[in-house]
Amino acid sequence: MDILLIHLFNALLYASVLFLIAGGLSLIYGVMRIVNLAHGNLFALGAFITASAVGQWFAGSTSVWLYLLLPLGALGAAAIGAILEPTLLRPFYRRPEEYQLLVTFGILMILEDVMRFVWGPYPVSATTLFEQMGSMTVGDWIYPRYNLLVIAIGGLAAIFLWAFIYRTNFGILLRATSQDMRRASALGVNVNLVYVEAFTIGCFMAGLGGAIIVPSQSAVLGMGVDALVLSFIVVVVGGLGSLEGALVGAVIVGLLRETAISLFPELELAVLYLIAALVLLVRPAGLFGRAT
């Protein structure tokens, strides 16, 4: 029985981080109709910022206050997002989609080089946070407590985001803009402001994903592209533009990966693409997608 619980933790751990990345990607698409290819590297940026704060600036410290550095990566990614949207993306909204893809892909490459320039080619670690919480026993098993913190943060983020979008005034403006940008604008909604805020929140989520997972992994070059591909699988399964979809998609991907690794190790790489292909065949808009 214990082993099932451990497998469930593993799957939820993976799903939590995936949800944060894919949720941000989906939110941005839902509101702005932009497929932000740079999104993966905002995740990586969050990881690098938190890793250097914990592992380099405050290296050697074992204070519990170090946990307050966790959100730093998220704030950093959000700040970059708040700059990118008005300066580089806004001029392209009236152009065809290809332009936006090219611009966001360009930003992806630039961010990758910026990270290499700042942090160099070697992995940056923030293990103190991971180690300090130690491990707990589940039956015969030893399990890192930090993983449960990651799952908790992922879950809380999902609840906050839901409340934010469905229970606040700003959420109403966000949904209105997402449904009909022109009409919202005609009714006096400051669409530019809504866009920059939505983009910033999306980047914050990606950065948070990177920041909370980096203590148990380490920040490496190329991690952003990998995350981008995985979050595309999640949004294909869940439906692009839908937050519920991102949540359900992330959980499905987490569970499937866990099952494949323990039962069919050779299928680990293929299984995620297989499920994406299957969903595309049966429900091309994704499980929660709106057909347009």
Partner: peptide
């Protein structure tokens, strides 16, 4: 036991669980 993670993965918890099992 065998596990074949993708190159440049960073989450090995499932592979570790499987190995320990």
């Amino acid at each position: 036991s065998e596990a074949w993670p993708k190159l440049f993965s960073t989450d090995f918890t499932p592979h570790i669980t499987k190995t320990l099992g």
